[in-house]
Nucleic acid binder design. Structure first.
Lengths: 110, 110
DNA sequence: GACGTGTGCAACCATGGAGTTGCAGATCAC
DNA sequence: GTGATCTGCAACTCCATGGTTGCACACGTC
């Protein structure tokens, strides 16, 4: 994996590591909403939510659609799926290595 | 998804969002090592690495094995795979919802 | 026993970021 | 035009945390 992709990964991880952002994503997963609408449902200010939405949009987890004078946000699965595949690949790699070590240890016991 | 899983998920992402921790994991993915050994390879102090290892161990990304007077750490794939599956499920859900919305929009155009 | 090395704990500093308030600019309805 | 509402920007506070240094302890080796 190159350094470039790591920065991308890290931004997604950073976005997903905040609980408030998860709540925002969960809300958006149920229905598209504006920042103001989210602010009435979550216990933080609209400005705080706006910041979170900027971060989420920056790493592709969310997209915005203008509807009249308000801006609706919606959750996108693509980036999440991509991240999931990367994690799966790395996890499998670690498991493989661990299995190999175990095998060597067993063969040495004989 | 319950609130409980949120916190768990968030802790894994928090662990993965730090570059130094990622480097530690990469190192451990190549071979099991002690904190001191990692300190010679990475540009941070042993104490900093020890803190990271504690965090990584707390969320199940790493396990420790005592070898003589040193403590070796190794990367575990299980938690990563579990996280990947969760992300995949959520991502698929969002995609499904988006597809449904798109379909409705198209049917209204007719 | 003495030294070298690996670990653990505590205090401390600096930075980033989550959250807030306040204000100003759009835009829609009347 | 006026008011209501949605947005954006900026300054500020506060706390979590990544990093450091310093010291003490444990264990193995000579």
């Amino acid at each position: 994996m190159t350094v470039g992709t790591y920065a991308e990964l890290a931004s997604v991880f950073a976005a997903l590591s905040d609980e408030t952002r998860w709540e925002i994503l969960t809300e958006l997963g149920r229905s598209d909403q504006s920042a103001s609408s989210l602010a009435t449902r979550l216990p933080v200010s609209r400005q705080a939510i706006a910041k979170h939405l900027t971060a989420l949009q920056a790493c592709g987890l969310v997209e915005s659609v203008k509807v009249g004078r308000e801006i609706r946000y919606r959750a996108l699965g693509a980036e999440l799926n991509k991240t999931a595949r990367t994690l799966e690949r790395i996890g499998a790699e670690w498991d493989r290595r661990l299995a190999a070590i175990k095998e060597i240890a067993e063969s040495m016991e004989e």
